[in-house]
């Protein structure tokens, strides 16, 4: 998956989790930009990403500060799986 593919997939996930079809996701978006992206929202996001991409994100999702960090984390996990 390329960064762009991941960003597109994340946009889909964000729209579903936050029930908002108007979200246009960019790497710069932070939790402050989306109303429901607090600690609870982050749990829903984590579960959804893990389920959709078949990876485990664990506690590292608590350390992210924007969408870019999530993409980096996902790439890291995918690389670990694919060698």
């Amino acid at each position: 998956m390329t960064r762009e593919d991941i960003l597109l997939k994340l946009e889909e996930i964000f729209r579903e989790v936050f029930d908002d079809e108007t979200i246009d996701l960019t790497e710069e978006i932070t939790p402050d930009d989306i109303e429901d992206w607090d600690s609870i929202g982050n749990v829903y996001l984590t579960v959804e990403i893990e389920e959709e991409l078949h990876i485990s994100l664990g506690d590292d999702m608590n350390k992210i500060s924007n969408v870019k960090d999530i993409i980096d984390l996902i790439i890291n996990r995918l690389e670990a799986i694919n060698g």
Binding site: E16, D19, G41, Y44, V47
Partner: peptide, 16 residues
């Protein structure tokens, strides 16, 4: 999920 979101508070939403 979308329908349920309109019925219950966000913290009650199932994760899976």
């Amino acid at each position: 999920r979308s329908q349920l979101n309109k019925k219950i508070p966000r913290y009650m939403m199932p994760h899976k």
